[in-house]
Amino acid sequence: MEAASLYQPLDPMSHEIRLLRILPPQNDAKTLDCLLETVSLDTSPKYFGLSYEWGKYAPEQPHPKVLVNSQEIPVKANLALAISRLRELGKDERYWIDALCINQEDDIERAQQVRIMTRIYENSSGVYSWLGLEDGKNDKVADFVQEFHQTFTVRPSRTNTVAREMLNWIRPKLSDPSCQEHWEGLHELCERAYWRRVWVIQEIVVAEKRQGVHLLCNSKEMLLWPFHKLVFLASEVTFSAPYGSHLEPWWAISRQLRSTSMVISAIIRHAEVWGEQQLDEYSLGLLRLLGDHARAQCTDQRDNVYALLGVSLPYEGLWLEINYSIPVSQVFLNAAQYIIRGSKSLQILLHYGEHSSKLSNLPSWVPDWSGTHSDPSMIT
């Protein structure tokens, strides 16, 4: 497939984007027929965003064939399954899906779209997060989360006692053998590689407080906030438990959930601050976020900076160029200079020597944000 035959240039001045419409199944149910159309964000189009893990491209793994404007597109299996799940929702909606709505072969367009990605997700009607296919255990987890959500429809806050009531609901279920499978399923979902993908941070942070994030897993759907709150509070039970509780079976479950939910909790904390518009250096400075999300993974190491830029404190009068044609070391140098000028601080020097860098041409005072946890199979 030639990109030029599918993608016509977008007008950045009109803030144009492409949207994907998933057509109802035709004669061949295994084929996913889709249409791409170009719209301007200035016209307030209606659409949903899709958040997912790109993962490895495995042609041998069975998955539906994707046709876009009658052209077959060699997408990765996980995306094909996500599109198939969106079609099952039966909604006549349009979706913004990065792998298909951006011409990935055009570095200039890619940079332009990344620059407005925060606005793309802000203007969406919501975000669907595809967690992938698994066994039937996760269907039961979704039912468990739904039961929790129906019991507590109001989010906890500083002015209500909902969190305490939630804990009282959770404690007996931690020690209930009939709920053991539910907790194991929650733990497994928290361990998904999806949560460690760097672009997930922006996709969730921007949409969570404004429109909400819907988690899709197998045939079930659940909202992100009750999913996280159930896991988070279950992991906190040990802090208020009486002496000797560490000998109880539920103690191990709680501790296990705490270790696996830390990455999700960091994203949720980011989303809460962003939703309250507490745009200050301490909470949302780019240097702070690069530290908070240091374990996020990507293939293109430039995205370790670019993915967080749109959900960080903007510095008035300063501009950090998004450019996929320059070396990673130059991106990190540009980001370091941007942080120093914007924060009017040399705090970045505290990171001197924190990580040994394998990048060539990286000054010693510039942190190596490529990370030691990047996985080449994780593509942003």
Rank of each mutant, 00 (worst) to 15 (best):
V237Q: 13
L309T: 02
A271E: 00
E316W: 07
Q61V: 13
S364W: 06
H182V: 01
A163Q: 03
D368E: 05
Y338N: 04
N78R: 11
I268G: 01
V206G: 00
L362Y: 13
S14P: 00
R341N: 02
I83E: 02
G244V: 12
R119N: 02
N138M: 09
D11E: 07
Q26A: 09
G371Q: 11
W251A: 13
R94P: 02
G55I: 10
A4K: 04
R171P: 04
Q297L: 06
G132D: 06
S178F: 09
Q347P: 00
H214Y: 06
E208T: 12
Y194R: 15
C34E: 02
L19H: 07
E181D: 12
R341W: 00
Q8C: 02
N103H: 08
W54H: 09
Q8A: 11
I379F: 14
I120K: 09
L346V: 13
L131N: 11
L81K: 14
M13Q: 14
G310S: 08
D107G: 09
C179T: 09
S84V: 05
E276I: 04
R18M: 09
S157P: 01
R85F: 10
M262F: 09
A4W: 03
S51F: 06
N138Q: 14
G342T: 03
E105N: 13
K173M: 09
I264P: 04
G342K: 02
W54I: 05
A335R: 04
E53F: 13
N361L: 15
L320R: 05
L287H: 05
L215A: 02
A294W: 11
G353D: 01
T161H: 02
I201N: 04
E208N: 14
Q278N: 08
G244T: 06
Y95N: 07
M378Y: 11
K30A: 02
L359T: 09
V114R: 15
S124T: 04
Y57V: 13
E53P: 00
Y7W: 07
T118I: 00
I348E: 08
G285L: 03
S343L: 03
N361V: 11
L309Y: 06
K358H: 10
L81Y: 12
L32R: 06
S175W: 13
R196E: 14
S374A: 10
S51Q: 07
G55S: 08
